[in-house]
Simulated scan of single mutants.
Amino acid sequence: MDGGDPVTGAGHVPVMLDRVRELLGPAVLRVSGRAPVYLDGTLGLGGHAEAMLDAHPGLRLIGLDRDTTALDRSARRLARFGDRVTLEHAVYDELPEILDRLGVPHVDAALFDLGVSSPQLDEAERGFAYAQDAPLDMRMDRTQSLTAAEVVNGYPPAELARILREYGEERFAQRIAAAIARERERAPLDSTSRLADLVRTSIPAATRRTGGNPAKRTFQALRIEVNGELDTWRRALPAALGALPVGGRIVVLAYHSLEDRITKRTLVAQAADTTPPGLPVPLPAHEPRFRLLTRGAEVPSETETTTNPRAGSVRLRAAERLREAT
């Protein structure tokens, strides 16, 4: 459940924390002769990172986040761990360059808690939430230029429809895009409430009565477009897997089907034996590089989803490296 200190995030309860620690712990404990390295590719409020640092006194953290506000809060929260903590303002697909610059050849355990963070949702001025009126922003990294307002007011209707259909899985994408195009001719769409109202009136009345707020899928699609989330994740996940040594582990928490699908396909492919069919024995060079640590995607307990509703859509997948790439 989110809460606690609004400045540092202390008191914030991270999603599926016990399971994350259970899965990543063996990768940390197997290391000897050096400090094990834990990568938190989506640091956020630092709750998972704090728990891992507390549980493993010799652990070194490399924490990434594109949100400078999140980094500032995590820095305060994790200050007591001193030089065990290295924080970087970066998107997680920049991982290879960061590790190279830091002189870190491998990370022993890695976590990616994908999607929008609680502070981004809770702070109305960030423009992520359709339930609160705010400027149409949706930038996770407020140092970047592209905003949701620029997408809504500048993209051609056909491109808007594609984004809503592909990233929001919105079946009324064409109708919503056409309504946006008409509305912005009268005046630019610049607020979350105005866009949410427009989406609501653009879809059939019967559809509005089920499935929660009808603007949810549109806001998800715009957020993904503004932040390049799916393309970034397609690059970041292989990079993170490549940074793991034998025995290293990764955990991914995904909150919508698009991210989870990318995760599943990538991990399953790495866990497959690619020996050509018809050969009498598996070829060593084609044996699986990883083993899956979960059977399908794991979901949080009913207790957790009751106390923390934002955990309700999460899907957890994990894997361990078995052999080096050839």
Rank of each mutant, 00 (worst) to 15 (best):
V91S: 00
T263W: 06
R182I: 02
G228N: 06
T274C: 13
A285T: 10
G47S: 15
T86H: 11
T274Y: 04
A311Q: 00
P280Y: 07
T303M: 09
P36H: 12
S145K: 10
L114C: 01
A215K: 01
G3M: 07
K264W: 04
T86L: 14
L136Q: 09
S193Y: 02
N153C: 14
P300Y: 04
L189F: 08
S313C: 03
L189V: 03
L244P: 00
A131G: 12
A90V: 09
V151L: 11
Y92W: 15
L253N: 06
L111C: 09
T232N: 11
P156F: 15
L222V: 01
D72C: 06
T274M: 06
A149G: 14
T263C: 07
P282I: 04
G168I: 04
D113Q: 01
I176M: 03
G46F: 01
G44V: 03
P214A: 03
L230I: 15
G58P: 00
A158P: 05
L267D: 11
E302F: 13
A221I: 13
L71H: 03
G3H: 09
M52P: 01
Y38S: 00
A243F: 10
L43Q: 09
A134T: 06
A129Q: 01
V268T: 08
E123W: 05
Q174E: 07
V107C: 06
T207Y: 13
Q132S: 12
H48G: 06
R175Q: 15
R126V: 02
E169A: 06
A35R: 15
R261M: 07
V252H: 02
G46A: 12
T143Y: 13
L189Y: 07
Q132E: 10
L283C: 08
V91A: 05
